[in-house]
């Protein structure tokens, strides 16, 4: 166990070094990047929603699941909330947004757990469903922000935007949840071998359900900030959001096959993507090149993980289902 821990620390350290490299590289090339205002109000503020959703996504991926519908849960939650705010006011709007997130997560979880359909298929289908409902209800037009969302998206506390505080709080909670609680242990266990975990007397279904609901709720929370930051949202705003979140989680060293990963990795992954996004923009690198750079960073990290993991993996218990990782 101690060995494993040491290994993980090194791993995140590597990731941290990569981030430092990128950060220093961009800072030396572009002077505008290094202003505290840009770093806090643009670089960090812009990544918050994605980073926030990446936290529960890490848990879901560690337990061997995935959620492709996150972006569209956010859009649906803001759409319904935004519409409610017009006729009912802010209070009900907040409630409706949160309930929407919860119900969306619950639907995902129930279909996955009760109907035993793979998470990818389920959330792919609900992705269309949530997108379609937002589009139909909003009739394709934009939904506007209301006082609570505007407050969350645009307020600063001690010179730092409120949403960064929220993110820090959530990051701490999720880190503790994953590394210090039995629930966290159970998640790894489900990811490594679901059946064995089930036979060990752990209520796997309940945990799964809880995770998808949690993810839906965090999406709803993030959707307030999102709506507030942009002042309006359209049904297609959530497109590609899922891939951005998954990119961060995977970049952070979480294995898409489940069982491996850490919250610190995800947080550093978030920083790397934030730095790349905002750094390359400020360097006037066209958006197409930015896509290539992000893709390359992802590929390089993936290969690095593959190299490091291939050895460590062999020593671990033989996993039946994680077939692609197995050597003959």
């Amino acid at each position: 166990m101690a060995k494993k821990k040491g290994f993980k620390l090194t791993f995140n350290a590597i990731l941290f070094l990569i981030w430092l490299f990128i950060f220093a590289g961009i800072a030396t090339i572009s002077s505008a990047f290094l202003s505290p205002n840009y770093l806090i109000n643009v670089m960090l503020r812009n990544i918050i929603e994605i980073g926030m959703v990446a936290l529960p996504m890490t848990l879901i991926i560690i337990m061997g699941g995935i959620d492709l519908s996150v972006g569209n849960i956010m859009v649906l939650a803001s759409t319904l909330g935004g519409l409610a705010s017009i006729s009912l006011g802010s209070g009900p709007a907040i409630l409706i947004t949160l309930v929407t997130g919860l119900v969306c997560g619950l639907i995902n979880g129930l279909v996955i757990v009760k109907a035993k359909i793979s998470p990818m298929v389920t959330t792919l289908a609900t992705m269309y469903l949530y997108l379609g409902i937002s589009r139909g209800i909003s009739k394709g037009s934009s939904i506007y922000s209301y006082d609570f969302a505007t407050f969350l998206g645009n307020t600063s506390l001690f010179g730092i935007p409120l949403q960064i505080w929220i993110y820090i709080l959530l990051a701490v909670i999720f880190t503790v949840l994953l590394s210090k609680t039995t629930l966290g242990r159970k998640l790894y266990s489900i990811g490594l071998n679901e059946n064995a975990t089930r036979y060990a007397g752990i209520d796997v279904d309940k945990i799964k359900l809880f995770m998808y609901v949690l993810c839906g709720l965090i999406c709803a929370l993030a959707s307030f900030i999102w709506l507030g930051r942009f002042t309006s949202i359209k049904f297609d705003a959530g497109t590609n959001f899922n891939m951005k979140v998954i990119t961060i989680v995977v970049l952070g060293g979480t294995s898409i096959n489940g069982g491996i990963g850490s919250m610190a990795g995800t947080i550093i992954g978030t920083l790397i993507i934030a730095t790349l996004n905002s750094g390359l923009t400020v360097m006037n690198i066209p958006i197409d090149v930015q896509t290539i750079v992000q893709g390359s960073v992802l590929i390089v990290s993936l290969i690095a993980y593959a190299v490091v993991n291939s050895r460590a993996k062999k020593k671990k218990l033989i996993k039946i289902q994680a077939a692609p990782k197995q050597a003959a």
């Binding site: 590597i14 070094l17 990569i18 490299f21 990128i22 590289g25 961009i26 090339i29 750079v293 390359s296 960073v297 390089v300 990290s301 290969i303 690095a304 190299v307 490091v308």
Partner: peptide
């Protein structure tokens, strides 16, 4: 792995 990542990242920059 670290070296590789570092070099490629730098090269990319």
């Amino acid at each position: 792995a670290t070296a590789m990542v570092g070099i490629i990242t730098l090269a990319m920059f």
